[in-house]
Amino acid sequence: MKPSLSAQLVSEYRKIMTWRVWWYLVGVLLVVLAGLTALISQIALSSSPFGNGADDAGNASVLFSAPTLVAPMVAITVGILVATRDYRNGTATLTFLGEPRRNRVLASKIVVAAAANILLAALSVIVSAGVAVAFLVAAGEQLWLWSSPVQAKLGWTVIAFMLWSLIGLGIGELVRNQFGALLSAFGYLLAIEPALRMMLGMGNIRLVDFFPGSAGDSLVGGTPMSGMYPRDLQDPVQGGLVLAAFAAIALALGWVRITRSDVP
C-alpha cells in the first residue's frame, strides 16, 4: 500500500473532527447568528414593511444576510487554525514524517478547510434562514426564502466562506505563528481595509473593487454593513473572481513556504 492522498486526508479529517475548539466555534457561531438575525429582522420589519413588488425580495434578503457579516472573519479564522494548529501543537513533525510530500499535506488541508467551511456556511445559512423565516411568519409577511435574490445570497454566502477559509489557510501556512496570523488577518479586515475603503471610496477610486473585503462584500451581494462605504459594490461574479484570486495568491505563498522551508 502506498501512502495515499486519502490517508493524509483521513488524518486531517480526524484532526478537525476530534478538535473540541472547532465544535465550540461552530456552536457559538450558530448562537450568535441566530441572535444577529433576530436583531436584523426586528429592525428591518419595524422600519419598512414589505410590499409584494419585485424590489421587495431584494429588501427582504437583508434578513438572510447575518452570515455574510461574519463570513470573512469566521472562515479566515478556521483556515488559519487548520494551517497553524500543527505548528502550535508541535505535531507538524508527525504530519510531515507520515507524508513527506509536502504538497500533499497542503492539498489535504485545502480539501479539509474548504469542506469544513462549506459545512459551517450551510449550518449558518440554515440557522439564520430559520430565524428570519420565523420573524417573517410572525409579522404576517410572505417567506421570501424561495425568491431568487434570497437564494442567490445564501448560495454566494457558502462560496464566500469557502474562499475566505482558503485565504486563511494560505496566510496560516505562510506565517505559521497562530497568533501572528490571526492578528494580521483581523488587523487588516477590521482596521486597515475599512479605513482605506472609506478614504479611497470617497474619491470613487476603482482600486477599492480589488480589495479582498470589498470583493467579498460584492460576492455576497452586500452585507448589513457594506452600505456605509461610499463606493458601490460590484457584481457577485466579479467580486467572487477577485476573492478567488486572493485565495490563489495566499495558497501559492503558503505552498512556497511549506515546500521550501524546514519543518519547525
Binding site: 501512502p3 490517508a7 493524509q8 488524518s11 480526524r14 484532526k15 476530534t18 478538535w19 508527525l94
Partner: peptide, 16 residues
C-alpha cells in the same frame, strides 16, 4: 494536541 485523548492522537496518525 493537548485536547486529544491518547487514543484520538493515535487514530489521527494511524492512517499514514
Amino acid at each position: 494536541a493537548p485536547g486529544h485523548s491518547a487514543i484520538e492522537h493515535l487514530r489521527t496518525y494511524a492512517p499514514l
